[in-house]
Design a protein around this nucleic acid. Structure first.
Length: 307
DNA sequence: AAGACGAAAGTGGTTGA
DNA sequence: TCAACAACTTTCGTCTT
């Protein structure tokens, strides 16, 4: 079973303590309750043969936020039942079905549509299930608080997904979200900020290192280049070159430099494209990196080697 | 000819009065 | 609510390989 959270969002500590009895995950460093909706996956009974297991099991499909009723809804009457009923029973059946229909409030209908859209976008971006779940949870909360009013459903879906990505350290750029959802980039950003602020979701600035792996692989760079890019990134953070700057630009520049050092040169254009920034930004970051960390000699070294 | 570089003007968002 | 501001983009001309 994969853990839900790896790092404490408050202090970034990794000493997370799973308290199964209370269904909580607690950060040992700062005491923050990181997650309080854990599901206890153990069964509390034992079964010795198939008969007992039939009798004692009482759960159905897992509960999930990606179904509009969290997978727990009741449907009145399935087709097969319909033909078995007669007279009074048949009337009863129709009455019940009508009821069921009326119970579905506007919220539920909205959720049904939205979650379909959410799944579509999520699978387009090949996002892990956990992120999809989180996004669905965020969206559900947003609907309940009436945050969708005045905004398009799609944009809130995109915003929720973006927020979920950030929380799970699987960063996708706003551009990618925008492309997948067909919502303008500004709009996605706007609703993302709005939703996270209104719901009080902590927004830790995304770590540039999280982008490296994905960028590196789409540029087909070696593992060495990749790991050096992360080293460069870390020293850049020590030099305080990273604060206030867009994380994608920094990640892109680190990769660019690292590729130069390893003789796997990529053009600024290529790197800029996968990172979703312009060459100019890469140039600026790149220059800062060379200035503050003595990297010129490393690049020259690989140049000479070539000759 | 393509890529790298840098200047200048424009954009959208944050901040602080 | 408005203006100043920082980061980033777009555009374009020049230099280097």
């Amino acid at each position: 079973m994969m853990t839900y959270v790896k790092k404490c969002p408050e202090c970034s500590g990794i000493n997370l303590f799973h308290n199964k009895d209370r269904g909580e995950v607690i950060c040992k460093d700062c005491g923050l309750v990181v997650e309080d909706k854990m599901v206890d996956f153990d069964q509390e009974w034992r079964e010795f043969d198939s008969e007992e297991s039939e009798k004692r099991r009482r759960t159905g499909a897992p509960m999930t936020y990606t179904q509009y009723d969290q997978g727990l809804g009741t449907e009145v009457g399935q087709k097969a039942d319909l033909y078995r009923l007669e007279g009074k029973d048949k009337n009863k059946f129709f009455r019940l079905r009508k009821w069921q229909y009326r119970i579905s409030t506007a919220i539920e209908r909205n959720l049904k549509l939205a979650l379909a859209e959410l799944k579509r976008v999520s699978s387009y971006l090949k996002l892990p299930k956990s992120v999809e779940e989180e996004a669905a949870r965020i969206y559900t909360l947003a609907v309940q608080r009436g945050l969708v009013r005045g905004r398009s459903m799609e944009s809130v879906v995109a915003g929720s997904l973006y927020a979920a990505c950030r929380r799970h350290d699987v960063p996708r750029t706003l551009d990618e979200l925008s492309e997948a959802s067909g919502i303008e980039k500004k709009e996605v950003g706007r609703t993302y900020r709005f939703v996270t602020r209104e719901l009080g979701i902590n927004i830790l600035p995304s770590n540039p290192a999280d982008y490296i792996a994905r960028f590196a692989s789409s540029l087909k760079l070696s593992a060495e280049t990749q790991s050096q890019a992360i080293e460069i990134l870390e020293s850049a953070q020590k030099e305080e070159l990273t604060s206030g700057r867009g994380p994608t630009g920094i990640a892109a520049a680190s990769l660019y430099v690292s590729a130069l050092i390893h003789g796997e040169k990529r053009t600024q254009r290529e790197v800029a494209d996968v990172a979703g920034v312009t060459e100019v930004t890469i140039r600026n970051r790149y220059k800062e990196l060379l200035d503050r960390l003595g990297l010129e000699k490393d690049i020259k070294k690989t140049k000479k080697k070539k000759e």
